[in-house]
Computed example of a mutant assay.
Amino acid sequence: MGLFDKNPFGHNLFVKKWLIRILGVLSHRRFRGFNELQIEGSDVIKNLPDTNVLFISNHQTYFADVVAMFHVFNASLSGRDDSIKNVGYLWQPKLNMYYVAAKETMRSGLLPKIMAYVGSISIERTWRSEGKDVNRQVKMSDISAISKALDDGWVITFPQGTTTPFKPIRKGTAHIIKRYKPVVVPIVIDGFRRSFDKKGLRVKKKNVYQSFEIKQPLEIDYENETIDSIVEKIEYAIEQHPSFLKVIPQEELIAKEELNKQREWLEN
């Protein structure tokens, strides 16, 4: 990599590498210190192609979700098994990694603008703007940007387009899947909403059980499956289908509470 090399979006890769390193070091303790991120499925990451991979995930905070993914993906690629121990994996980070985010969110301050440089594909939401419901056409330039990112590497998207749980899946994600035929990898996260504020910048509570599950790529018939069928697969894969709205069994709550107590004892 040369000093002046750029990615397809015109971002200097040398600058991007250092931003990932710095932000990674500053954020590492949020997932391995204040709270301990429990990871499952890192082998999936190690076996993926270098380009045209689409990660789909439920969404709990504006920024912590993506930051955790950058940690987990780079740690997995450096050979770690379900662990982000030792932040040295950030010395040579994967630079062709992007995430889809609302344009207004990424323009809302200095830190979001820095985060945008790290890998944001900033799009205009078609259903909401500045806290109000809207109804506007998808911009072809936004679709083109996602296509460009898939051609260059990996893309993370949150198909519900909101941090509110069990909201409908936006069909735009299914259209992208049918059109560009990426490898689709589901991720299910939990605990971020309890441990961070809504933006994911401030630690709200310590010793919270945080989980990060990487599932096997979805089996999709790109030519014959309908948009609705793909949407339903996404709902089940990221555990946001209405059928997941259930009371957590008492024994599961007790088990999680015991784990939190053990972690609190270790921290002290």
Score class of each variant (00 low, 15 high):
Pro186Cys: 00
Arg179Pro: 00
Phe9Cys: 03
Lys171Ala: 13
Gly153Tyr: 11
Gln262Glu: 15
Phe9Gln: 06
Phe34Val: 03
Asp221Tyr: 01
Leu111Ile: 15
Gly79Asp: 05
Phe73Gln: 05
Thr126Pro: 07
Val67Ala: 09
Glu264Ser: 12
Arg29Asn: 15
Lys46Thr: 14
Asn52Met: 06
Val184Glu: 02
Met69Glu: 13
Ala68Asp: 03
Ile56Asp: 13
Tyr209Asn: 08
Pro242Ile: 01
Phe31Met: 08
Ala68Cys: 02
Asp221Glu: 01
Gln92Val: 08
Ser243Cys: 11
Ile20Cys: 07
Pro217Gly: 01
Ser57Asp: 04
Leu110Pro: 03
Ile121Asn: 05
His71Thr: 02
Glu124Asn: 12
Arg179Leu: 13
Arg202Leu: 14
Ile22Ser: 14
Thr157Gly: 04
Ala75Gln: 00
Asp190Ser: 14
Tyr99Cys: 00
Lys178Asn: 09
Asn260Glu: 14
Asp81Ser: 12
Arg107Tyr: 06
Asn268Trp: 08
Glu257Gly: 04
Gln92His: 14
Lys94Leu: 10
Ser83Pro: 09
Ala237Ile: 06
Ile230Pro: 01
Arg29Thr: 15
Ser83Arg: 03
Asp142Lys: 04
Val25His: 13
Ala75Asn: 02
Ser243Thr: 13
Lys181Cys: 09
Phe192Pro: 02
Tyr99Glu: 00
Leu259Pro: 00
Val208Ser: 02
Met115Thr: 01
Asp43Tyr: 11
Pro159Arg: 10
Met140Gln: 13
Pro249Gly: 07
Met140Cys: 06
Gly33Thr: 06
Tyr180Gly: 04
Thr163Leu: 13
Gly79Phe: 02
Val208Pro: 02
Phe63Tyr: 12
Val87Ser: 12
Val185Met: 05
Trp127Arg: 11
Thr61Glu: 08
His71Tyr: 04
Ile189Trp: 04
Glu130Ala: 14
Ala64Trp: 02
Lys215Ala: 06
Gly161Ile: 01
Gln160Lys: 03
Trp265Pro: 03
Ala75Tyr: 01
Phe212Met: 01
Lys46Glu: 13
Met69Gly: 05
Lys198Tyr: 06
Asn96Thr: 10
Gly88Val: 09
Ser195Met: 08
Pro112Phe: 01
His28Glu: 08
Ile169Trp: 03
Arg128Tyr: 15
Gly24Leu: 04
Glu40Trp: 09
Trp265Cys: 10
Arg193Lys: 15
Asn224Met: 06
Asn260Phe: 09
Asp43Leu: 13
Val134Phe: 05
Gly172Gln: 03
Ile177Pro: 00
Gln240Tyr: 02
Ile143Phe: 11
Gly33Val: 08
Ser83Ile: 06
